[in-house]
Simulated scan of single mutants.
Amino acid sequence: MLPLYQSQLGLFFILLCPTNSISLWWAVGNPLVLDPNSICRKTTRLAGKQAELCQTQPQIVSEVAKGARLGVRECQFQFRARRWNCTIHNRHFGKILRQDIRETAFVYAITSAGVAYAVTQACSMGELLQCGCENTLRRAAVPPAAGPGAGAATWEWGGCGDDVEFGYDKSKQFMDAESKKAQSDIKSLIDLHNNEAGRLTVKNYMRTECKCHGLSGSCAVKTCWKKMPHFREVGDRLLDRFNGAFKVMGGNDGKTLIPVGHNIKQPDKQDLIYSAESPDFCLPNRRTGSPGTRGRVCNGTAMDVSGCDLLCCGRGHRDQTVSFQENCQCRFHWCCVVQCNQCTVRKELSICV
């Protein structure tokens, strides 16, 4: 059986052959993601629920791959100014996934959220036969999100709401499958918790959209439906959870996680958790998977994580002028051509040494 860290994100694989045996490494962001069938090519190595999806619902597996890519892109955006910037180098990334650190917690959460998001979105767009809009019709006395004095307009649930329950279930089925095999293992418990935190950040923050119906633009009747939050909002919320993540250790019963420290409250289902301290990510380190920060662009005036002092780990930085071409002085010519000149733009950058 494969170690859990190798199969937690059972999405894209790299076959490494250091010996006569073949070891299977899971690594989000591998180019094989462009072919979703690659996920299912080795079904004997997938957990039961994953193999079942591959065999019976391959269209959903394609959305799983899209969701994983969505999660990785968001991870790279949220960590773009940090020492570890969610770099997807195959070997480095695999080393990161082995550890129970904050960064791994965020990767699991945002990827699980991405899968739930992509599957739900595909349902709403009519791209999956197994699901569609969330069309449960309900009535209430006051329109959703409306405060006192909102008026007495007739309204009802309708439209094409996002069926987030379906996306949530499929993400849980695929992303949790391997970890459920060993729930007494502390890493499995942490992985399952962080996967759930990601999905709940999609599910628990659905927004209400409404459309008015009536003569002359009046709002005599209003139809409302539930939509998922923008995925950037999901990433922002999970980054907040990352910044306030809880350190935990395994309980004596092998089934519970206990926060480390005195008088620390138990993390809730949407908190991110970890059990090991992160490396400083200052220098390249094969053991930890740190790519280092040498050559990274930093902000010479910022005092936050993007500032040169922090990002360059006190090694200093050098200023460099870079030149590049961009369109300028664009003019529209009737009809229908836009012509632009090419201008040379110079920009001063600060580079970590």
Rank of each mutant, 00 (worst) to 15 (best):
C17K: 12
L192A: 00
F246E: 06
E165R: 09
T223I: 14
A47E: 08
E52P: 00
N204T: 04
R80Y: 11
T223V: 14
V221N: 13
S290T: 07
W25R: 13
G251E: 14
R91H: 10
P267D: 10
A150N: 12
R207P: 04
W225Q: 05
N135H: 08
P58T: 06
K49R: 15
E196G: 13
T111A: 02
S323W: 09
Q270H: 10
G167I: 03
V119I: 12
L4F: 05
C313P: 01
A150G: 15
Y108Q: 13
A122P: 01
C298Q: 08
I258N: 13
W225S: 06
P3L: 15
N30F: 07
D162H: 07
K226V: 01
V142D: 09
W334A: 14
V260M: 10
F106G: 02
A177H: 02
R139Y: 15
V107F: 12
V142C: 13
N20C: 13
P58L: 09
S188K: 06
A118D: 02
S350T: 14
Q183R: 11
M175W: 00
Q76Y: 03
F281N: 06
G132V: 07
R41L: 15
L15V: 03
T111R: 02
P3F: 10
L70Y: 02
T288S: 15
I14Y: 12
G251W: 10
S275T: 04
S124N: 08
C17S: 15
L200I: 07
F106D: 01
S124P: 00
V345K: 15
I101D: 01
A302K: 08
M1G: 12
R318Y: 05
M125F: 06
S179Y: 02
G307N: 11
D253S: 06
H92I: 08
G29A: 05
R315E: 05
R331L: 04
W26N: 15
I190L: 02
D163M: 02
D163G: 03
V248P: 01
L24D: 08
S21I: 15
L137G: 14
K66C: 14
V338K: 06
N37Q: 14
L11E: 04
E63T: 06
V234W: 07
R241I: 07
A152V: 07
V202S: 00
D236L: 12
R241C: 03
C343T: 09
F231A: 04
G292K: 03
R331H: 09
G158N: 03
